[in-house]
Design a protein around this nucleic acid. Structure first.
Length: 471
DNA sequence: TGAAATGTTGGGGCG
DNA sequence: ACGCCCCAACATTTC
């Protein structure tokens, strides 16, 4: 009976999984394998929040596989070759990753396996379209989102996920599984040494069931108000599906399929799935953009270097309530509302004039949905140096953004409780409040809550002047 | 998927 | 009744 290895990476689901389905179609037995090879992910090794998520996602997938998910650690190729030898597998199946380093590694592995006479096949579980299949009339990759998205719609979004293979009696036998050994999930060291994850566990259900429940709830309740509601961080009428998508507990085809029949109300939401797709296509075609600006003029941009201010931003101690609220939500839950992501990113890159890469790195280390393509695009977009980016002079004013999108300050009050007794009028700019108002609210600036790191008006002007020097 | 500066308009107070 | 000024309110331009 022929046996196939299914090498799982960021496609941690049984449904809509081409590698798994193809392996099951072509072989009598399936051996699912996860390989922990942190060295191969440098310099973008997942941060602590991502590792926390991965741990629970693997635990859940292992349970779905009836305890038969083989885990090993070590260089991917060596491990695969060893498992092939030990199990007598005829072939290895996986779903493609699209980061430059992963592509290089996987190509080598595919070639090496085939050289050794082992079958190797890869499928697509992560994207709606393969990046090399989408191009404009000049046969070049798109650099602007809207025409890119129109093209995807014209091509027709894939509407049908791949069905779940019947795995009954198809998994590697328990005896064979035990003989293969492998390491326990806890031995991968993905969980934090100190228990900072209490609020994370309260916030997230890291499982396939959690992903399905979240998708269903979002489509039933939040989608109706999504076009406007997604702008209100206190209401949080957003999908919160990004971490599930990153680890492949849910696939984009499944989301498109779930939106069928909701056509018009789902339009704005599907557009966001389009941005995710755009990000992956961009990083595929412009491999340097995780580290360097797409707009080469920014190579000479006068970014500042200020560790104290960077740390204040990271810790949510900038003295700008909406910025601090966002940074604290990120630290506590591994996630931040998207509107607030734009605001904190604008503040870092424009008001503080600190490099977008520093912000991207912090997000990388702290987000449960940290994704190299989406993160790079988002930061370059805000910094004004990316493809189809916001113009550099578009500077968010966190006070006005707060008054527009967090009217009443519920979001700020939740994450910056030391300001909760301030009246609405001053909640987004405590530094401007009369002393008696501050006293009545029990706030002493500089003691209970920092004074603003920079003056918003002056720092905005400083950013515009810096931009004038490179344009 | 901005904000601020600048320009225009129109109503009302007033001489 | 009329012209003038002020100033919201809104529109347009600029960064």
């Amino acid at each position: 009976m022929s046996l196939a290895i299914v090498w799982l990476r960021r496609d941690l689901r049984l449904a809509d999984n081409p590698a798994l389905s193809q392996a099951a179609a072509e072989h009598a037995r399936i051996l699912p394998v996860y390989i922990h090879a942190p060295d191969e992910e440098a310099p973008w090794q997942p941060g602590a929040a991502s590792r926390w998520w991965l741990h629970h996602a693997l635990a859940d997938l292992g349970a779905q596989l009836d305890g038969r998910l083989l885990m090993r650690r070590g260089p991917s190729l060596e491990v695969l070759q060893a498992v092939v030898a030990e199990s007598g597998a005829a072939a290895v199946y996986w779903n493609r990753l699209y980061e430059p380093a992963a592509i290089a590694r996987d190509s080598e592995i595919k070639a090496a396996l085939r050289d050794a006479g082992v079958g190797a096949a890869s499928g697509n579980a992560g994207l709606l379209f393969e990046p090399w299949t989408v191009h404009n009339r000049q046969d070049k990759p798109f650099r602007v989102f809207t025409p890119f998205w129109k093209q995807l719609l014209a091509l027709g979004l894939p509407q049908r996920p791949v069905s779940v293979p019947a795995l009954d009696g198809r998994l590697v036998t328990r005896t064979a599984f035990r003989r293969l050994g492998g390491v326990g999930l806890d031995e991968l060291g993905l969980l934090p040494d100190i228990p900072w994850d209490a609020q994370m566990a309260e916030t997230w259900h890291v499982s396939r069931a959690g992903a399905e429940a979240r998708l269903e709830e979002f489509l039933e309740t939040d989608l109706r108000h999504y076009a406007h509601g997604r702008d209100l961080p206190a209401k949080d009428q957003v999908s919160r599906l990004s971490p599930y998508l990153h680890f492949g507990q849910l696939g984009p085809r499944e989301i498109v399929a779930a939106c069928r029949g909701l056509r018009s109300s789902a339009e704005a939401f599907l557009r966001e799935i389009g941005w995710r797709e755009f990000a992956h296509h961009l990083l595929y075609h412009f491999a340097h953009t995780s580290d360097a600006a797409m707009d080469a003029r920014f190579d000479g941009f006068p970014w500042r270097d200020d560790d104290a201010q960077l740390i204040a931003w990271q810790r949510g101690q900038t003295g700008i309530p909406l910025v601090d609220a966002g940074m604290r939500q990120l630290w506590a839950t591994g996630w931040m509302h998207n509107r607030v992501r734009m605001i904190v990113a604008s503040f870092l890159t424009k008001n503080l004039l600190l490099p977008w890469q520093a912000g991207a790195r912090w997000f990388w280390d702290t987000l449960v949905d940290a994704d190299l393509a989406s993160n790079s695009l988002g930061w370059q977009w805000t910094a004004g140096c990316g493809a189809d980016a916001a113009p550099y002079f578009r500077v968010f004013n966190p006070v006005l953004q707060g008054e527009k999108f967090d009217k009443g300050g519920a979001y700020v009050r939740h994450w910056v409780p030391e300001l909760r007794r301030l009246p609405d009028k001053w909640i987004h700019q405590p530094w401007a409040a009369p002393v008696e108002v501050l006293a009545a609210a029990g706030v002493s600036l500089g003691t209970d809550y920092p004074r603003p790191l920079v003056d918003l008006k002056a720092s905005r002007q400083r950013a515009l002047d810096a931009w004038a020097r490179i344009k």
